[in-house]
Computed example of a mutant assay.
Amino acid sequence: MNQPDMHAGNAGSTGNARKRPRLAVWKFASCDGCQLSLLDCEDEFLALADAIEIANFPEASSAIGEGPYDLSLVEGSITTGHDAERILAVRQQSKFLVTIGACATAGGVQALRNFADIREFVAAVYASPQYIKTLATSTPISAHVPVDYELRGCPIDKTQLIEVISAFLAGRKPAIASHSVCVECKQRGTVCVMVQGTPCLGPVTHAGCGAICPAFRRGCYGCYGPMETPNVAALAREWQVLGATPQIVRHALRTFNVAAPAFLKESEAHDD
């Protein structure tokens, strides 16, 4: 990720007033959950509000300021031709662009369309499918424009989001851990569910959730996508030792982060 200087700006009329960095939040194909995580920051976000200008955030305010923007947060995947054009305009107006959530970083659960004929889905859902214009695939933002940082999760963790925004304001790299959910299990003293015979995606999933599911004796769902250098093939073999069929392994990897390369490759290895 680039090391930004978010404090750079023109002095105001008094000669010593600093221009606040301008923040924009954009939505593409998604459920709005990651934007709601930002709104859920409440007190933490209020502390940042004095340091930034929220210029464009339709989820929070109808007041829309025109670009350019110092930092853009982008939620959602690209699923229509119109959005493929719109993200180019967003990138052009943004000094730094950060994608937030599984949809923006890996295509989201809607990327399941990538394995089927989208025309069949449209015909099954809409009474007049001839009026629906959509792409055959759902793809992450990085497939269309350069991205400065990716924050994973479905939805994202609000503490991590505040850290990313703070890092850009300070001109430094975000301090987001790259380890797996397994480390979080150890930190909270949770006994490994795989040792107890429950298949779990924790060993290959990026940390950030606090290992909630294993704490309730449930295997990790992989909401935060693959960690750095995950050995998904080795984990799949362990799942099969525990009795998981190829179909179970494939379905487990084809959820929120189905189009993430590491999960996609291993899921295809278990196709019929």
Rank of each mutant, 00 (worst) to 15 (best):
G9P: 00
N10R: 03
A11H: 02
G12N: 01
G12M: 02
G15S: 02
G15I: 00
A17Q: 04
A17C: 01
R18I: 01
K19W: 03
K19E: 14
V25A: 09
V25E: 00
D32R: 08
L38M: 14
L39K: 02
C41G: 03
A51P: 05
E53A: 14
E59R: 10
S61M: 06
A63F: 04
L71G: 05
S72N: 01
A84V: 02
I87C: 00
V98T: 00
G101C: 05
A102I: 04
A104N: 04
G107I: 13
V109A: 10
R113K: 15
A116K: 15
V122W: 10
A123I: 11
I132M: 11
L135M: 15
T137K: 13
V145D: 03
R152A: 07
A167K: 07
L169Q: 09
G171R: 06
G171N: 08
K173D: 09
V181G: 03
C182E: 06
C182I: 08
C182G: 05
T190Y: 11
T190W: 07
G197D: 12
G202E: 12
V204S: 06
T205C: 09
G208K: 03
I212V: 11
R218D: 11
G219H: 07
G222L: 01
G225P: 04
A233C: 00
A234E: 12
A234H: 13
L235G: 09
A236C: 12
E238L: 15
P246E: 13
I248N: 15
A262D: 12
L264P: 00
L264A: 07
L264G: 01
S267F: 07
E268R: 13
D272K: 15
